[in-house]
Design a binder for these strands. Structure first.
Lengths: 142, 142
DNA sequence: AAAATTAGTTGACATTATCAACCAAAATAA
DNA sequence: TTATTTTGGTTGATAATGTCAACTAATTTT
């Protein structure tokens, strides 16, 4: 079997399982909103532009998305001292609760996936995964 | 680092790279159309329902998608002898050419990703990936 | 200081996705 | 067998998601 096939297959399975778990936990948020929330929670000092870049989406869409997340009180915009054009996006307590729920879903899926595998094997797997990823990431020219 | 984090990171990188490669090859097809084409090429005797199930999408959408793929002459509907309600979806030569292009993009990304890793390590990786996937797949009750 | 770039915002519009209602074929139950 | 239910597909209406182009204001480059 090809590497690509294997990875696509695994990703497909993870996607389906996550979908299921998210439904079970009744995280009542549109997929894009949830995804944005997650990215905001991961990226340091996230701004609209960073969010758009990371998600690979048009900034217009991201801007509207942010507006909705703000109006749903899942995030807040904080003035950016370093750049007065932009705002830092921070999860509210409500937003953070949803991310915690999401992490539960994630944990369930990844436990189901890996709990019969030895920690050593998992560690090796993670390590190789990171190498593979770094091969794909654009090299910054020094 | 967590397994989930590692996998999400890798997938994100693969996604971005595939997007880039597909753009370079100027495969001029909407993302969903390309994805459907790929699934049709993978699934044996693919029907609309199978396609909808696999993609996890509404059958209405899939139905319209199929209509467009047919009108673009990328696939053909063949009468299903086993079930006269449905049709088998087959790639046309034109559709097959696009899939071949897609495979080139895929190959480029996965070479870039893995060509500094020994084949043995890749094989181990693929094997574990398959185990992880099978842990997630719904067990058929025998 | 002038010009170019960047972050964000908005309007118009295209694509993607879902729901509900419907028909006909097929599977199941009576 | 006939009646009922389920399944695969189709359509209309509409919602969610995504893109392009134009614009403003802050920042950076020249």
């Amino acid at each position: 079997m090809e590497l690509s096939e294997a990875i696509f297959g695994l990703v497909h399975a993870v996607r389906n399982n996550m979908k299921q778990e998210i439904k079970l936990l009744s995280i009542d948020l549109a997929p894009m909103h949830l995804k944005s929330l997650k990215v905001i929670s991961i990226i340091d000092n996230c701004t609209g532009q960073k969010l758009a870049d990371f998600m690979g989406r048009d900034k217009a869409q991201i801007n509207r998305l942010i507006k909705e997340l703000v109006s749903q009180e899942l995030i807040t915009k904080i003035d950016n001292e370093n750049d007065k054009r932009s705002h830092l996006l921070k999860l509210s307590i409500k937003g953070d609760k949803i991310i915690e729920l999401f992490k539960i879903a994630e944990k369930r899926v990844f436990n189901k996936m890996a709990n019969d595998i030895s920690p050593e094997k998992i560690d090796d797997f993670i390590q190789l995964t990171q190498i593979l990823q770094s091969n794909l990431n654009p090299k910054s020219i020094e």
